[in-house]
Amino acid sequence: MAEVALERVAKRFGDVQAVAELSLTVGAGELLVLLGASGAGKTTTLRLVAGLERLDAGTVRIAGRDVSRAAPAERDVAFVFQQYSLYPHYSVYDNLAFPLRSPLRRMAEDAIRRRVGEIAETLRIAHKLDSRATQLSGGEMQRVAIGRALVREPACFLMDEPLSSLDAKLREDLRIELKRIQRELGATILYVTHDQIEAMTLGDRIGVLEAGRLIQVGTPRELYERPASVVVARRLGSPPINLLPAALVGQIVPAAATLGVRPEDIRIGTVGLPARVAAVEALGAETVVALDIAGTLLHALISGEADLVPGAGVHLELPRERLIAFDGAGRRVVGAESLPA
């Protein structure tokens, strides 16, 4: 497995700057997730690495080799598409064997059979090898699509929302499986998603894209606890981070315009900011409480059941060391959490 490096990559479609000045390195054996809203440039970035789109500017290096002008076939990458991009008139076996039968490879049919067998075993589709691609369920099709990428042992894998067309249960199963396979193979994967749970659970690191720009790269923990901006803060966490005007809490940090507090950090008690309970949603293991502070709605996440009724007056404690301060432009005020309380 190899390292993938993008340097000041740019791509424009007509009037739309899809990707701008994007620099990013995916380490060998790393799973890096590109996270962003639709239209943020995630898929375009992936397609630029694959060579399915031509770069306007910048360079793409795979395993240290400049492949900016190389055709997709020369880049030794494998791509898993959002749609089940199987060859519909082929059996599962032939679909999996397709990349191995490339004339660039000249692999013996014996070796192909062994390799396809291994991968089918790993993805638990061995019993489906003789089925036609069109006879499979959605989950099976996407396994085959992932399998077709895995058989190749390419320099890196590019995955464009491979799980988004599956139902929730299957998505979870395949997510866990994908992570296991990635660890086993030590595969370099650039993975695109708009699903924050997928990003948090799969990614060794996450890159957040916004309007074609990479705004922050880091481990899931870093991004969650020290987001570079309001955009990143809002992208991760469910229920989402609470943002309230700094004036409401009192000037804790001089430059702060907005304060962010994660729902699980809010403590409901008898001292602190007065608030009113707006709604209580019991989820079993935890409870989401909607709170109204002078017209601003906050969500608090409490473990277990909460003894609250809508309309009740309560007091909130916002632990200072957990507050994230943002300036007027939405950027995080660095070092705010270390200020004395």
Binding site: P72, V77, A78, P99, R105
Partner: peptide
């Protein structure tokens, strides 16, 4: 595109 990446 899949075929292209699969080196066909």
């Amino acid at each position: 595109e899949a075929a292209e990446v699969d080196r066909a």
